[in-house]
Amino acid sequence: MESTIARTIGRLVLQFIQVMGLYIAFHGHLSPGGGFAGGTVIGASLVLAVLLDIPFRGKSVLKESFVLAESSCLIVYVIIGFVGIAAGTGFLSNLSARFPPGTPGSVLSAGFMVPLGVAICLKVASTIGSLFWALAREDTQDGVWNA
């Protein structure tokens, strides 16, 4: 997009959007939100960065990292689930599989919920990004992000 106003404002707002998304994802067990909401915010910020043509590090490998994140986050979820079976309780059991409960109210608490939330967050962000890439692909040359 060629608009100077949109690019300048987008550059300013982008980091705040991403910090907001990470906050929502990391505080899913304390406040409204969680992995799905935070991942949507982060995915939308990446779409904004690409639409406004804002340069950032790792832009050339964004498609590959989306594919990697999408597959590995699902595997991480299942591996966390199998920890419960290894501990002698059911699949995806949290505190009964001796995940540390922490202090209720702090960020690092509630057993596996924070890693699970972050995995879902990356998964959803890469889903949004992949969908945008698939839809915007007609405007790109050789699959390079230059929408």
Binding site: H29, L74, L92, A110, G111, G117
Partner: peptide
């Protein structure tokens, strides 16, 4: 569960298997 947000406690702990299915649906859809 140790989580203060009851919605997340249900979604990620009591119904964690359901959320895994939800994530799989997202994966299959994309």
């Amino acid at each position: 569960t140790g989580a203060q947000n009851i919605v997340t406690a249900i979604v990620l702990d009591y119904r964690g298997f359901d959320t895994l299915g939800e994530t799989t649906v997202l994966f299959t859809a994309i």
